[in-house]
Design a protein around this nucleic acid. Sequence first.
DNA 1: AAATATTTTTAGACAAATCTAAATTATTAT
DNA 2: ATAATAATTTAGATTTGTCTAAAAATATTT
Lengths: 221, 221
Amino acid sequence: MLNYSTSEENYIKAIYHLQQQDGNVTTNELAAELKAKPASITDMMKKLKAKKLLHYEPYQGFSLSNEGKKVALGIIRRHRLWEYFLAEKLKFTWDEVHEVAEHLEHVSSKKLIDKLDEFLGFPRVDPHGDPIPDQDGKIETSRQVCLLDLPFNKAAVVSHVSDQSTEILELLKHKNIVIGTKLEVKKKFSFDNSMEVKAGRQPVFTISEQLAKNIFVKYGA
Amino acid sequence: MLNYSTSEENYIKAIYHLQQQDGNVTTNELAAELKAKPASITDMMKKLKAKKLLHYEPYQGFSLSNEGKKVALGIIRRHRLWEYFLAEKLKFTWDEVHEVAEHLEHVSSKKLIDKLDEFLGFPRVDPHGDPIPDQDGKIETSRQVCLLDLPFNKAAVVSHVSDQSTEILELLKHKNIVIGTKLEVKKKFSFDNSMEVKAGRQPVFTISEQLAKNIFVKYGA
DNA sequence: AAATATTTTTAGACAAATCTAAATTATTAT
DNA sequence: ATAATAATTTAGATTTGTCTAAAAATATTT
C-alpha cells in the first residue's frame, strides 16, 4: 500500500462516505463536503484517477475503484480506532473525539495501528457505533437498527417495518417511504422524540416517535 | 500558542537540539541535520525570523528566541509522550518508537497531549531516558549520569571525575578533557565496553571502560 | 427543441516548501 | 593582505494544493 498525502486522504475518505449514499459522487457534492471550490475537486480527481484510485470521466461524476476503497477503509480504520482510544482511554466525550481523530488518522504506520487495535482489545465499533474495519479492510456492513437509534447524518436504507397496519402504510406511502428508501436523520427533538429526516434530494420532513419506532434501517460504514 | 506547519516544527525542533550543543547554529549544520539544501534553510530562517521564533542575521547563524524555545519544548513534549506511550502501552521496542513519534508529534491538540500525559501517569522521562517537558514547558535539565550511561549523540558536559589519581589526570590531560568539556558518545563496543567520543570539532577518539566509569556528565533535553 | 440555468472543467494565478545554479560574504592559507 | 576556499544567500524554477474567472458541457424550463 502506497502512501498518500493528507489532502488526498481527505478526498478519498469524503468520496467513500458520499458514495455510500449516492453511488456516484458529483463535483459539487464533494466540494460542499470538503468546503472546497469545485475547481479544486476537478484537479484532485485527475490526480486520483491517474493513481487508479477512482473511476472518473469528465462531467460524469466519480466513484472509488477497488484500490481506492481499500485505501478509504484503511483511513476509516485509523480514524475509528483513534476515536475509540480517545473515548475509552483518554476519557474524551463522544463529541470531542472526531476532530482530534481527523488529525491522528493521517499517521499511516500499519504497525502502529495494528498494535493500537490489539491494545484496545480489537473493538468492533467506535464510540458513535460505527463499525471498525479489520487489518484486511473487512468491515461489518449493514447493521440493522431502529430508526430511533440511527446516528445523525448516517445514510441508511429502510430494511424493515414492524407494524403492518393499513394506517402505517398509508402514512409511509404519503411520505414516500418504502423498503429500500435511503434516509438520513438531520435533527431530533427531545420534547416529543420526533425527528427530521432527509430522503435523497427531497426536502427534509418530519417523522413522529411512533412512526420511527416501527422503521428499521440498515447502514454501512 | 499559534499553530505551525509540520515543516516549521521540524526546523524548530532541529535548531533546538543543535543549539543545546553549539549555542549558535549555522546554515550548513542545520542542512545536514534535516537532510535539506542550505538554500532551503535560509528560506525557512527568514520565515521563522518574521514569526519571531528565532534570532537571525544573514551570515551570522541563528538561535531560537524565548518564544521559539517554548514552541520547541511543546514539540519535544509531544514527541516524548508518544514515545513513552508506544513503548509502554503498545510494546514497541525502544528503537522503533522514534520514527512513529516523529509523525504523531505534529498533532498539536493541547487537550490530547495533556490527557495522554495523565493517562500515562505523568512520566518524567521517555524510553531513551530523556526528560519530558511538563504542560508549561518546564524540563528537567542537567541530569548527571556516568559517561557509560550517556545515550548516543547526546551532548553532555563533563561535571565530575571520581578518581583523583595522577594517573587518571595524566590521561585526561592527554585527551584534553576537563570539567566543562562537551562530549558526545558516537559508538560503544560491547567487546571491551570502550567507546568512541567526540569533543567539539576535534576528531573522534576512544575512551576505555575504566576511564568512562570515572567520568560523570550533565546533559539537558 | 431552443433558451436559460446549472454544473463542471479549463486556464491562469498564488502560497508553501523545496531545489539548482549563480552571486555574495566570510574564512583560511599562503 | 591577498588569493583561494568554504559557507551562505539570492534568483529563479518546480511541485502540491488551492483559488478566481471564464469557457464548455449538461440539465432544466418553457
